[in-house]
Every structure is written in C-alpha cells, then in structure tokens.
C-alpha cells in the first residue's frame, strides 16, 4: 500500500544484506515456514532449500527501505491486545447485525497518522479494520480515511490508543500533535 520509491538494490548489496542479522532472521523465518508447510521429511529440503534461499533473495530485493523491525517485546505486548480487540470487534458487529433493526450509523472520519515508518503505517491500517466498528478505507498523504459502523461514537481515542500500540510494536516514538 505504501512504499517509498527508491531504485532497486544491486545484486551485491542484496548479497551483503542476506548475511546481515536482519537477513539471517528472515532466512530462519522462511525455513520455518517450509518446515511447517512441507513437514519434517528431510528429502523435502531438496526443493525447500533453494526455495527458501530464493524467497529470502526476493524479499531483500523487494524491501527498498531499511527501517525499523518489529521488536520481540512489542510483539508480546501486542498479541494479547490484538486478540482481545478482535474478539470485541467480531462480537460488536455480530450484535449489530443480529438485532431486529440493524443498529448502525455509518460514516467516514479522517485520522492523521503520526507513525512515520512505512511498515508500521501499513500495519496500523490493517489493524484498524479489526478494531470494533472501524475499517480503514483509504490512505492518502498521511491521512487515514476510516469508515465507522457508528460514526456517532468517539473513535479518535481508540484509534490513538491503537496507534500507540503499533508505535510500541515497532519501537517508534510518536512525534507531532495528537490531533485528527
């Protein structure tokens, strides 16, 4: 959705990145995926090893930014929050549609994103859609257009709290004024 445009890195740059800590983490991650998908049959690695290498290479080539990564502590704090919010989000929408008269007052609100990291912004936009009653509908020039099931409710507060959570996840400090 949002990538800062820059020329694609050259082959030697990619090769250097692959052996960095970041690249190795990715390699381990893809190898883990292969293990999960193919099972622990050693012979499967005849195809798996080249596939994992190719995937790591492609991922490095496509990632044109050198930004922050998700921090482990942030992830551990984010997961319970995320699970609880998705339960609330699902229950909220189920309650609204199961009433005899559908209980909604839809509207579109604008939210100025304070996160600067492109990856964190995409993550924030995706997370908005799981919060109760909100759906990220568009994103332009640092403004998220959020569709609300009930636009009469105060949604700025939950959005700010979610943004703080995502900032914590990426180890980012939010700057600027907290306004919409």
């Amino acid at each position: 959705m949002t990538t800062t445009e820059a020329p694609a890195p050259s082959a030697s740059v990619i090769a250097r990145r692959l052996v960095s800590l970041h690249g190795l983490t990715r390699l381990v991650l893809f190898a883990g995926f292969w293990l999960v998908f193919a099972g622990n049959d050693p012979q499967s690695w005849i195809i798996g090893a080249p596939a994992v290498l190719l995937a790591s290479w492609t991922a490095e080539r496509l990632s044109r930014r050198r930004g922050r990564d998700v921090t482990l502590g942030g992830l551990l704090r984010y997961i319970p929050f995320f699970l609880w919010e998705s339960i609330l989000g699902g229950t909220d929408v189920a309650k609204r549609v199961m009433r005899p008269e559908v209980d909604i007052a839809p509207g579109l609100i604008e939210y100025k994103i304070r996160l600067t990291e492109p990856g964190a912004r995409v993550f924030f936009l995706d997370s908005i859609s799981l919060l109760p009653g909100t759906l990220s509908a568009d994103y332009r020039d640092g403004i998220a257009y959020v569709h609300a099931l009930d636009a009469d409710e105060d949604l700025l507060d939950p959005l700010r709290r979610l943004e703080l959570r995502v900032a914590d996840l990426f180890g980012e400090r939010l700057g600027g004024e907290p306004d919409a």
Partner: peptide, 14 residues
C-alpha cells in the same frame, strides 16, 4: 462498506 465490516471482523474471529 458496512458489509466489509461484517465480513472481515466476523469471519476472521469465526
């Protein structure tokens, strides 16, 4: 838009 709400949230949780 409202249908998208129902689809993403309810089905993911389900």
């Amino acid at each position: 838009f409202t249908r998208l709400h129902a689809l993403t949230k309810a089905d993911n949780l389900g």
